[in-house]
Design a protein around this nucleic acid. Sequence first.
DNA 1: CTGATTGCAAACACTTTGCAGCAGA
DNA 2: TCTGCTGCAAAGTGTTTGCAATCAG
Lengths: 173, 173
Amino acid sequence: MSQGTNILPSLPRISARARKQALPYEPVCAIFRRYLHLEKLKFTPERAMILDAVLRKTGLFEAEQLVDDLKQLGHRASRATVYRTLSHLQDAGILKQVFFDNKQSYYEVIAGRQTYDYLICVCSGKVIEFNSDKLRKLRDEICREHGFEPVSHQFHIFGLCPEAREKAKESKS
Amino acid sequence: MSQGTNILPSLPRISARARKQALPYEPVCAIFRRYLHLEKLKFTPERAMILDAVLRKTGLFEAEQLVDDLKQLGHRASRATVYRTLSHLQDAGILKQVFFDNKQSYYEVIAGRQTYDYLICVCSGKVIEFNSDKLRKLRDEICREHGFEPVSHQFHIFGLCPEAREKAKESKS
DNA sequence: CTGATTGCAAACACTTTGCAGCAGA
DNA sequence: TCTGCTGCAAAGTGTTTGCAATCAG
């Protein structure tokens, strides 16, 4: 039987326009407002509240979690609006979907934050973030070889975390 | 509306490189039978047919596609059985799920085949497979640093393919 | 003013599951 | 024989969508 969580990467959705215009240190809210303006969309209270809740998150989070957070913050916003806004935030380059597990998506704020790659334990589901300059360099090298212009990447390593390895050893002996 | 690309549905699923590789049909079938035997499961005609259809695939494919393929091959197997068998094939290490988009999973045969990493064009959806020893080495190095034992990895680079870059240039000028 | 936005609930689409009859080993 | 397997259809589940009322610009 399948042991462990099935966590798969998803694809980033950042519009070309957003990519060109995101300034690294600009307040995220300003990025969003400009994006909305350019797309002739409106900056509504609901969208502001959702962005607020999103920016409070650190690391990975789920849409459903966000719905709860909003309730806790006393913010009203329907599930539908949350999903619709998450979509816009992705297009604005503020957010990206990082994983899917069997059912749902996991998001991560990328605007103005360092992004990570992940080590994922196939036994415990534990996720370790890491960062590697060498990886970025290698990515750029591979892209050059193929005439590709990199926008982003996702590197997920699946395996056994130290604890899981320990357990595996024990059960062997 | 945003042009947030949902790239996956248009992924090409035949790669020249993969096509060149001989299908190691017998060995994989043996792997599957052994797995089934060990798990006290049965090797049924349906499972044989599904494995056959799976091994004809090169590159990424979807479950639904497989259902169609089976019909075309004159093989009967219900949708439910296909899904159940795909699950077993994963557990047997013959297959892996590579992507999820919001809706469905994308699979790839791994047994007896070289696996690839992917460059994915965010404009055209074009997918380029690549292979890198340096990447594997870097992966192992990163794992060592974290006491992780790697089982597999997925490295997806998103960006603009040469054609898309060309187009982008044109539209600027 | 006017078209975008919202909440609701129903719709979706892929996948899983319960069940009764069937069939490998 | 005795589990496990199959097909069917129904259930599940995160997400999306249609619609009428509402609101931002």
